[in-house]
Amino acid sequence: MPKNPRDGIDAQILSELRQNARISLAQLGEKVLLSRNAVRQRIERLERDGFINGYTIKESAGDGAATVNAVLLIQRQDRMRGGDVIAGLRAIPEITTCDVVSGELDLVARVEAPDAARIQEIWRQVSEFPGVRDITTALSLSTVIDRQLARDGGPRS
Rank of each mutant, 00 (worst) to 15 (best):
N4W: 08
P5Q: 00
I9M: 08
D10V: 04
A11C: 02
Q12L: 15
I13S: 11
I13H: 05
L14Q: 02
S15N: 13
S15T: 14
E16I: 11
E16G: 07
E16D: 11
R18I: 13
R18H: 09
Q19W: 08
N20M: 12
A21W: 05
R22D: 10
I23Y: 08
S24I: 08
L25I: 07
L25V: 06
A26E: 13
G29Q: 08
E30H: 09
E30T: 08
E30S: 11
V32E: 02
L34N: 04
R36D: 12
N37V: 12
N37L: 06
A38H: 01
A38W: 01
A38R: 02
V39K: 08
V39H: 05
V39I: 09
Q41H: 01
R42W: 05
R42T: 04
I43Y: 02
E44I: 09
E44A: 04
E47P: 02
D49L: 07
D49N: 10
F51I: 03
N53P: 00
G54A: 07
Y55K: 12
T56A: 14
I57Q: 13
I57S: 14
I57M: 13
K58H: 01
E59I: 09
S60M: 14
S60Y: 12
A61H: 07
T67S: 15
T67Y: 15
V68A: 13
V68Q: 13
N69D: 05
N69F: 07
A70I: 03
A70T: 02
A70H: 02
L72C: 07
I74Q: 08
R76Y: 02
R76G: 02
Q77D: 15
Q77H: 11
Q77G: 07
D78R: 01
D78W: 06
R79I: 08
G82A: 15
V85K: 10
V85I: 15
I86D: 09
I86P: 01
A87P: 01
G88A: 05
R90L: 09
I95P: 06
T96R: 15
T96E: 13
T96V: 14
V101H: 10
V101E: 12
S102D: 01
G103D: 07
G103P: 04
D106E: 08
L107F: 03
V108P: 00
A109V: 09
R110S: 13
R110H: 12
E112G: 00
A116C: 00
A116F: 03
A116G: 06
R118W: 01
E121N: 09
I122V: 10
W123T: 15
R124W: 07
Q125V: 04
S127D: 13
F129V: 00
P130W: 00
G131V: 11
G131T: 12
T136K: 04
T136Q: 11
T137I: 06
A138G: 04
L139W: 01
S140W: 04
L141A: 14
S142V: 12
S142L: 14
V144E: 14
I145T: 14
I145F: 14
R147A: 10
R147L: 10
L149H: 11
